[in-house]
Design a protein around this nucleic acid. Structure first.
Ligand code: MG
Length: 511
DNA sequence: GGGCCTAAACACT
DNA sequence: AGTGTTTAGGCCC
């Protein structure tokens, strides 16, 4: 496994240095110095096209004189011609399980790419690590899968469906309308892919086995002899961290959050996404809404709700309620510990084959499937990338099946829109979920229904929602394509996602 | 104009 | 502090 990859890494890998601080295109920077490390590193064979000449990507200005970018050959970056995305891809592919945590990716870089070898310290690694994270988030080809083990960061896997064309993989956020749409679609696709990835992994992994690959062993992680090849070590080294998926759950809005965003509801919902997936629809707010619905079923958590980040709330954008917020809330909820069942979330869940993690915010895949797949995916939750990280917690089983068979009709949707704005019907998946003992599994019903919303501008929400839905329905759903979601299993129970949300939904009573 | 790199603001845990 | 997500500026092709 890894071996190859290693080698793949470009021949140019010799480190070419560039002051990290310089963010500007290299041109000048890189080139001039370029070479600190050896331009040609010993041993490294330059690829045919590449010479060592230019490192710079730039050329443009070459004012400085420096190197001229040779066309074909120059290396685009200080480390070679590969982009971060490519490097990350190699790293992941080189791992036995085809998935790595962020820290493992870092380790791979340091151990495998000469340029980064001496850039592992905190000071010098800030920039490239930031870039790694950025690339992971940005490209749809990288899917984040929740790491079942508590305390560990998410697994990053490759999305087979995405990617090929850089275009798809890359999610641009320029926010112009066009981009948005594209982005949304991409998200939808991603979510879908994430689901698939989770399933794949789940299947692949033996259930009893420890979800994670290996162990942590790796004390001093030895760089392999040569550094390269042995990346295995790398894989095993984990950094314990607390679960981090922060971003995913919360409705965190981008720094800039503007009103514009609204439309972009994060697309998580595998549900929606998955369902609609390719259909154009997925992308829109619809998703948000759907999510909402879905989320509910999950159960809700009592406290969790309360805990939930208020951020979302505030950030409501003007136009449309921030769906994101919405979503976030909902999705978040699920993660909360089941109200009754598990009083306290203890990090580990026992027993049942569920994959709920205590803090999982992402989709939970693990509902234990009746027969076929008993095992849960090691990393129980998958998140669709980007915004999508928040998924409703529909049990996978349900999702899958539902997607396939049952459908959510337009009418239903409309109905929903029309009447209610409120709370979505809950899914009654009770049976599907085994409860994790401790953790925050989402228990479908148990949730506290009593939970009341704390506060919220429900009104605002509501109103906005209306618009949205209509809009969505009109514009997207009607378009057609496959609109088949199905939430039938959702009984009209009431539970809100969140306390707050509930409020918003308050009105919506399933008559 | 797309692809990439880099920096940085934010959010969460 | 580590993770993740997003935006933004800028160069290169
Ligand atoms: Mg991604």
């Amino acid at each position: 496994m890894e071996e190859d990859s290693v080698q793949d890494v470009d021949p140019d890998f010799e480190p070419r240095s560039r002051p990290r601080s310089c963010t500007w295109p290299n041109v000048s920077t890189v080139k001039p110095e370029g070479e600190d490390v050896g331009e040609t590193a010993p041993g490294i064979v330059l690829a045919p096209g590449q010479g060592k000449d230019a490192d710079s990507r730039g050329g443009a200005t070459s004012g400085v004189g420096v190197v001229t970018p040779r066309k074909g050959g120059s290396r685009r970056n200080a480390w070679g011609n590969q982009s971060y995305a490519e490097l990350i891809t190699q790293a992941i592919e080189s791992s036995p399980e085809k998935r790595l945590t962020l820290s493992q990716i870092y380790d791979w870089m340091v151990n495998t790419v000469p340029y980064f070898k001496d850039k592992g310290d905190s000071n010098s690694s800030v920039g490239w690590k930031n870039s790694i994270r950025h690339n992971l988030s940005l490209h749809s080809k990288f899917l984040r899968v929740q790491n079942e083990a508590s305390g560990k960061s998410s697994w990053w896997t490759l999305n087979p469906e995405a990617g090929r064309s850089a275009k798809e993989s890359r999610q641009r956020h320029s926010m112009d309308n066009c981009s948005k749409l594209l982005k949304s679609r991409a998200h939808a696709r991603q979510a879908k892919a994430a689901r698939a990835a989770a399933l794949r992994q789940r299947e692949a992994a033996p259930e009893g086995a420890p979800p994670d690959p290996p162990s942590q062993s790796h004390p001093g992680r030895s760089p392999s002899p040569h550094g390269y090849l042995d990346n295995t070590d790398v894989w095993t080294s984990f950094r314990s961290r607390t679960g981090s998926n922060a971003s995913s759950l919360s409705g965190r809005r981008s720094p800039v959050a503007t009103a514009l965003e609204d439309e972009e509801a994060p697309m998580e919902e595998p549900l929606v996404a998955g369902a609609l997936a390719e259909s154009s629809v997925a992308e829109l707010d619809l998703s948000a809404r759907l999510t909402l619905i879905a989320g509910q079923q999950g159960g809700t958590s009592p406290q969790g709700s309360s805990t939930a980040p208020p951020t979302c709330l505030h950030s409501m954008p003007t136009l449309v309620p921030s769906e994101s917020s919405f979503l976030s809330l909902c999705s978040t909820q699920p993660s909360a510990p089941p109200a009754q069942a598990a009083p306290l979330p203890s990090p580990r869940w026992v027993g049942p084959p569920c994959c709920f993690g205590p803090g999982s915010q992402d989709v939970t895949y693990g509902a234990h499937l009746p027969s076929g797949m008993g095992a849960l995916f090691p990393g129980g939750h998958v998140s669709g990338i980007q915004g999508a990280s928040h998924l409703p917690n529909l049990p996978m089983a349900q999702l899958d099946s539902s997607l396939g068979t049952q459908g959510f009709s337009l009418k239903q949707l409309q109905a929903l829109a029309g009447h209610s704005r409120g709370r979505p019907p809950q899914a009654g998946a009770g049976s599907c979920f085994p409860m994790p003992e401790t953790a925050g599994g989402h228990i479908p019903f148990l949730g506290n229904q009593d939970q009341l919303p704390t506060d919220l501008d429900a009104d605002m929400f509501t109103e906005n929602l209306d618009c949205d839905i209509d809009y969505i329905i009109n514009s997207d759903l009607l378009d057609g394509e496959a609109v088949d979601f199905n939430f039938d299993m959702i009984p009209p129970v009431k539970q809100g996602c969140h306390g707050n949300l509930q409020d918003s939904f308050h009105n919506w009573v399933p008559s």
